[in-house]
Design a binder for these strands. Structure first.
Lengths: 103, 103
DNA sequence: AAAGTATATACATTTATAGCTATATAGTTA
DNA sequence: TAACTATATAGCTATAAATGTATATACTTT
């Protein structure tokens, strides 16, 4: 397989490699949301949230549209939620493994 | 959901967020391998490869054992391959989307 | 035990990320 | 059009990640 693919795959993982960005995606799981809803959910300043949104947008994971003064974001591709779910499964598997070691 | 979970999920994605580490996992898809097989496949110095292996090991994604002078690495949890496969699906979906725009 | 081999770690350097404050932009309302 | 609101960008600083060279460690062979 071409090394180019590894770079592109790594780019996707990079986009998800921050707790704030994971949380943003979680917030967008059931419905699109205005930035004004996302900012208060994330314990950081508005410009920082905006940067995280732009990272996810640049990677093609989110899209947005303007609605008056507000900007609405949503997840482009439901596959992303499968990535998030899988990462949780992996955590569970790790915990289970450790539990067995100490049991 | 607790923010702690987002941190742990992000940690997993961080571990995968480098082309060399994606490629290492790809190499370990079908069988365990000696470091001496992994190094020549990755266009970088042996100590750099060793660091990437240790990042994946620290995150619990890889395990290793010594076999004489050699060290054999393998993937702990097949879920990780599903993450890699999904990331490829996401790439395909992006390409397909762009293709349609220009069609 | 000395020399050799495979892998890991330490150190120094460079580059990339992330966060904050300040400011710009785009749209709205008075 | 002036003031206001929501969001994005710029500039700076601090922290983290990645890489290469040099060196240490662990094991093997002679």
């Amino acid at each position: 397989m071409s090394d180019k693919v590894f770079i592109l795959q790594a780019d996707i993982f990079k986009a998800l490699a921050h707790p704030a960005r994971v949380k943003i995606l979680q917030l967008l799981k059931n419905r699109e949301r205005c930035v004004c809803e996302i900012v208060p959910a994330l314990d950081m300043e508005q410009p920082s949230v905006s940067r995280h949104l732009s990272i996810l947008r640049k990677e093609g994971i989110l899209s947005c549209r303007k609605d008056g003064l507000k900007v609405i974001y949503w997840v482009n591709d439901p596959y992303v939620f499968e990535l998030l779910d899988l990462s949780k499964e992996i955590l569970k598997a790790h915990w289970e493994k450790k539990r067995k070691i100490f049991a």
